[in-house]
Write a protein that binds this DNA or RNA. Sequence first.
DNA 1: TAATGAATATGAGATATCTCATATTTTCGA
DNA 2: TCGAAAATATGAGATATCTCATATTCATTA
Lengths: 221, 221
Amino acid sequence: MEVYKNQKKQFYVENYSIAHLFSFHVEMEVHEYGRDEWIIQEGMRPHYLFYVLEGKAKIYVTHQNGKVSLINFINENEYIGEMELLNDVYYTKGIQATTKTICFAIPYHRYRNQLLDDNKFLRELTKFLSLKATFMAAKYSQSLAFPLENRLADFILQTADEGLYKEKHVTVCDYLGVSYRHLLHVLTQFCEKQFLQKEGRNYRIIQPQSLHELAGALRNG
Amino acid sequence: MEVYKNQKKQFYVENYSIAHLFSFHVEMEVHEYGRDEWIIQEGMRPHYLFYVLEGKAKIYVTHQNGKVSLINFINENEYIGEMELLNDVYYTKGIQATTKTICFAIPYHRYRNQLLDDNKFLRELTKFLSLKATFMAAKYSQSLAFPLENRLADFILQTADEGLYKEKHVTVCDYLGVSYRHLLHVLTQFCEKQFLQKEGRNYRIIQPQSLHELAGALRNG
DNA sequence: TAATGAATATGAGATATCTCATATTTTCGA
DNA sequence: TCGAAAATATGAGATATCTCATATTCATTA
């Protein structure tokens, strides 16, 4: 982890300003986390509210039976640590940078009360949280109502880059909550059905409409 | 649905005041919904923000494949319709009263802007939403990481009334996302293992500690 | 009170998904 | 550059869960 100083810091403060999210001046730090580095350790309360400027991260939770769930991805322009800002009692999930990640870090001890009094900030945060809650509810009900086939089709379409799917299997297992073996099994089926075609370690989408059909089943009414 | 008037209305306005949740005066209606009545219809935008005073309700969503998910229960002192207040685009879930339910109903058209400008209100709402998001995330990851056995044990302990479990099977299936057949199967296992004992259509808990062990596996850390 | 629909119940076979064992390939630090 | 760790790959058997078929009991209402 690196805390930017001087010109480096200045660059982000000037070019990525999020002053419009607050109605008062907030003096923030700029942190950089390397790929795979932990921004917040599971079970440990963070000291900052983060706002992601560049990069992406993953939210992990470890269960007692040893299984690990990748609860969600965090992208640019999203908050990290907002749960701890709001709730005194909260089991902190682990947040790991997927790529190099640069974020603003707002120290709780200094700004907590001011933030909670700031209408502008709260309004944005409320929207963010409502979307988060909705998203989790959707994922939850989908995970129970549909087999991997549908959820994987959706995930492939969402993460593919120019028609090429190249996610790490292990990450996907944690995210979709299935075993490595089963994921490979369904991927093989997709290839047999000619929805995908292997290209080295990646998979090329050759029948997007079939995947769209499978993924479409997840959508409501 | 009945809209209370005069003394009936007065009674709730005076005895269940939620004035402390706002920093301005809100003129609200008092609605009563009968058991099994729909407070909000799936797919239809509501016109009110509700606050439950008495009774409880269920949030349902219907999937394209016909499966129905009971996303969550709503209890006294919780909001209904807050998602629609915050987000212009939102797929509205169905809300059904489980028992007779009485709630305050705050008309959007009149108060929407004022509510979103009210710091007191937003702060509470933010907390409510953060808990909701956290809860859904927990349920989601648990549903993927644990078999029904553990989740059902937890559910039984949470809903049992004086050691007697008497939920409707169909409701539980929708909530835990499993088939009727499988739910019965696991319940039978619990009886065979002497965790539960059937009493008519209900089940008496006779080995709470065994259930607590199963349920405890869901907890973090 | 009869009739109808909801809720409970149970069996049997199918399928989705898991666990474990093991092999190969790739990546990356010492 | 070598070796360890990570990622990919595949087989085989086990188990969790689903679907469908069919009864029985209970509650509600015409």
